[in-house]
Write a protein that binds this DNA or RNA. Structure first.
Lengths: 224, 224, 224, 224
DNA sequence: CATGAATGAGGTTTCATTCAT
DNA sequence: CATGAATGAAACCTCATTCAT
């Protein structure tokens, strides 16, 4: 993220200047702190100063790295969600095996890398506060929803093309795949709603079961 | 929408001054306006003055009827959610028929009277902002979650006692019933997340399908 | 500025409620305080809270009457400068006498009602800070410069049409009239530049002398 | 623009390292950049970092050469205005010819070396912001106003002593000489006030005309 | 009862200045 | 010498809540 102009002298001086190391680490630390707080309290209720404090810097420093709170939020989304789609797209390009396995793999990987992490809270945040912050909502749609849908769409097309899946309206079928993910994300970040905080839903089982249901629904050969 | 406590006396004295009737209607109008705005923008982002304006009164009047914003919110919850449990409990006490039908009826009635109304936005609100307003979260748990769970628990016990349902851990099974409701409420109030606002999920079908799935899961006689 | 809804009851109660009287007086008090401070310190250096304090109210009250600092400034300009042009235009429409006398009258009246008052500081302010606040500069151009030029232009045209003035390029001649005004305004508000604050320039003499010079310059009959 | 104090040694050692020359040029480059920005935006609105950037150095470097923004401003004034008085004083000491010609020369030279340059913006700046920065105002009075007045005063005394000028109160007459200069400086840096930015006033003509007017006014022999 | 003027704590953002490297 | 990361005081503006009328 930062152009390391001192590459040569760094070689000569392997113990990089502490200050400079911090400088490169700062954006990441701030983004991490912001992710925590945004997920915990929402966008509006998170105070810039608190993010800075959690990252161990002062108020002013935050604005040294991010023009304003919205840009900070966008960076959080980019770092934790949209930035990963290129990697995922590549994985799926080289995937060999049935499309059913591909979808299973997709769901599992999503759970491991997003659903079960704090990043899933960002989705909930957008659902709650999106209408109050149209800029953020639009950014999220462009950077996360659109590529996410595209990824799922590709899988569905692959299945249909190969004859594994019945030919359905892909644009609608997408939601059958995404709905369980959405639900899990919401559920996870709404535990305060459960009395006594009982953990009742086993997410991995839920994902597995829902995946099979969806697959059966999509299958070209109707289950007997 | 507001329980008219003086209904009878109104009948006896039909010429009651219009102004006085307005006076009695005030809290209800404020609650209705508040419901709209809370659901639309969330608790924190809703300004007291806007609620008052939508109810056609001045800012000061709002605080005449409700000590503060939190009390207003509690009134909204009471009026739209918790206040209805007594009525529902009664309905279910006199219900005759199989427990499966009872559950089907429960789900349908919930959808008609809550799920499809603005009141369902309150649940989403609590999920989003609950952690920022512990008092409200606690109030909601006591007034809505607890009686809601109790209602479902009673249905499940009835089914188990009658042999219709397999004997399961009721405290956990509750969530199987509630989860689809929760999901629908969240989904409904998060449409901005969908690209192009495609309406994809038919709520009534969703409820029906999920109900049958749950019933099959609960059934004492394993589906062949 | 405020619709007095209580006209009748005011009649019955001639000692208007103190609070309400204040309410109607507030904008004016705030504008007066703002004029003082803007002229004294400039736009950027004047703090909103200080304006409020000088008007005897708190920070928040200022923003009750003016959306933001720029709107406050615009109100100050409107109240003290642009609002007066309609009155002036009328005066000049009914003016009888030579155009030379009309111009003399114009200059004298300008000095009495603007040049010698704090309002003249606004012009200096715009000259200094206009480029930092393009919105304000544009507003001032539309609301003050344009009608001011129009007024002078009309006088010049009248003189030319009547044969008193030589036919000149009016758009340029305007500046011959305005320049002495501008200079006086700047001079007045820049006294700190004079050592020991010696008052050296007698404004009324200056205006009179400059007026005659301009008149001689405009005259149709060349001075012998 | 910067007085190269090491000029001679540079000649003796032409191969002096470029970096060192830069080092000596720094203050001058910073002062030049600061002049530009101060004149363009004013003192308060000019950001230290922007000055540094325009001079091609980092923020820290600026404060290496100038203790703070005020000292930087003083250096700008010294370099562009007060530093020149010694040179001018010398020129006038050796001036031969009538005092009228001396005054004409003075005005012309002032226009060429100050009035028409960016330095003239400093005067406008002080007029606008002087009251917000008393230290700077005082500095300017001591370093520019005082020697400027002294210069003019000497010319007037010379004329009176030689019988060319009528014996007048010199302290007041000074302003007759200075006023046109001030006006031009203000006018020049306030173009945004003109509608459509019409250039109307030809400065050199203005200076020439005003000079003659002043001379006639000062002359010992009343114009016929 | 009803009003709406007034308050002031609290949040975001800017920028001169310092100082470790 | 030079850098630029870090600081924190200060300014603008919002809004829940109070209270005189």
């Amino acid at each position: 993220m930062v152009t390391p102009r001192r590459f040569l002298s760094d070689k000569l001086c392997p113990v990089r200047a502490k200050r400079e190391r911090r400088k490169e680490a700062r954006p990441g630390e701030l983004i991490a702190a912001a992710l925590d707080l945004f997920v915990e309290k929402g966008f509006a209720a998170t105070r810039a100063e608190e993010v800075a404090a959690r990252a161990g810097v002062s108020k002013g420093t935050l604005f040294l790295y991010f023009k304003n709170k919205e840009e900070l939020f966008k960076a959080v989304v980019t770092e934790n969600l949209s930035g990963r789609f290129t990697e995922w797209n590549k994985e799926f390009e080289v995937f060999e095996g049935s499309t059913s396995d591909m979808l299973r793999y997709c769901m599992r990987v999503w759970w491991e890398r997003v659903g079960s992490t704090k990043a899933s809270g960002l989705t909930k945040l957008l659902m709650s506060e999106g209408s109050n912050f149209p800029t953020l909502a639009e950014f999220y749609r462009q950077e996360v929803v659109r590529p996410g849908h595209a990824l799922v769409r590709r899988i569905l097309h692959r299945g249909i093309d190969s004859g594994e899946f019945a030919p359905v309206d892909v644009d609608h079928a997408i939601y059958a795949v995404i709905a369980p993910m959405m639900f899990l994300m919401l559920w996870q970040h709404s535990t305060p709603m459960c009395i006594d905080g009982q953990a009742v839903l086993d997410p991995e089982t839920f994902i597995a079961v829902q995946t099979e249901i969806v697959l059966r629904g999509l299958s070209a050969r109707p289950s007997a």
